Simulated assay, not measured.
Amino acid sequence: MTSFDIKDAGVLLAKELEKKRFGEAPENLYEPLRYILSLGGKRLRPALTLLGCYVFDEDYKKAMEPAIGVEVFHNFTLMHDDIMDEAPLRRGHTTVHEKWNANIGILSGDVMFVKAYEHIMKVEDSILRSAMELFNKCAQEVCEGQQFDMDFEERDEVGEEEYINMIRLKTAVLVGFALRLGALIGGATDEQSAVIEEFGVNVGLGFQLNDDILDVYADQAKFGKQVGGDIISNKKTLMLIQALKQAEGKDAEELQYWLHKTDFDKAEKVKAVTAIYDRLGIKQMATDRANQYFDKGFSALDRLDLTEDKKQLLKEFGVYLQNRDH
């Protein structure tokens, strides 16, 4: 029996991506595409497509081209998100719109979306319609999640369920789709692929909630981006939503002070708001909520008609996301 390692799959995907040109001229259309794909990342989403295939058919390399499509789509969303957020850096490097300009970033992102379709369509004809319907649904939901995220920036109050729904759409559905696409390629039934998608969406929710926690509490040397960025920008994460709900007296006054102050020292604000979170037990609350989603995902695996070693591979991926520290 062949073996599967998620990190090895990521390395294999990176090598395959390096071979791709996607197009030649005009250079300002295709070079930004190649540039953002060259910036690295864990390649987790496309590796999940390979994993989803492997647990049903060990010849997982037949899912390589669709997996590349998943990665191209993911990076398309990052390229456009960076423009909307006016972000200067992505993975420690200059963002596309800063290196070129916003118009080039928009158009290069558009062609990435086309290339994502081109690669995801490289499945057997028998599952082509299902694969494309699932991708269309996923792509639409990711856009909905991004719009909700932007809408929340303009609102004073956001509810917990609203936030969970936003991160489900913006982040978790792509994790679920990546796994389900691989499962379909591997020969899973519609029922089996739906269960594996359910697993992916739930661990994707846990992943994002953990990411919110790491944004506040991670080791800066490991995290790869500014710790406390969500606090600095007043991003309405579950942690802030709960802090606003629970804070009383001086904690409530201090939290409102930092939320409305426009001229501040970033490090001072991060330290002050983190201290409020500590006093309110916000980190543990968010950790407990993330673990609920991981547990829900793990429970879904019990409904899969797979050997225990294959189920264990899926669970190990979830545990990896659950325990990551950067």
Rank of each mutant, 00 (worst) to 15 (best):
V216D: 02
M121A: 15
L209A: 09
Q147V: 14
F177Y: 14
V175R: 03
I167D: 03
N210I: 13
L128S: 06
I164G: 00
T171E: 01
M150G: 10
I127D: 07
L214D: 13
E197P: 01
A131E: 00
Q140V: 13
K225H: 11
V158N: 05
R180F: 03
A172L: 07
F152V: 04
W100M: 08
G187D: 11
E198Q: 12
G109N: 09
V175E: 00
K137M: 13
R155T: 09
M121T: 15
N103C: 11
C138R: 04
V201H: 00
K115A: 09
L214W: 05
T189Y: 06
F199A: 00
L179H: 06
D212Q: 12
R168Y: 10
Q140Y: 11
V123S: 02
V142W: 00
S233R: 15
A102F: 06
G159M: 07
N210G: 09
D219V: 10
L128Q: 02
D149Y: 05
G187T: 05
I120M: 04
V175S: 04
E133A: 11
S130G: 10
G228A: 08
F207A: 04
D190L: 12
E141A: 13
Q146D: 13
F223L: 12
I120V: 15
V227L: 05
N101P: 10
A172D: 07
R129K: 15
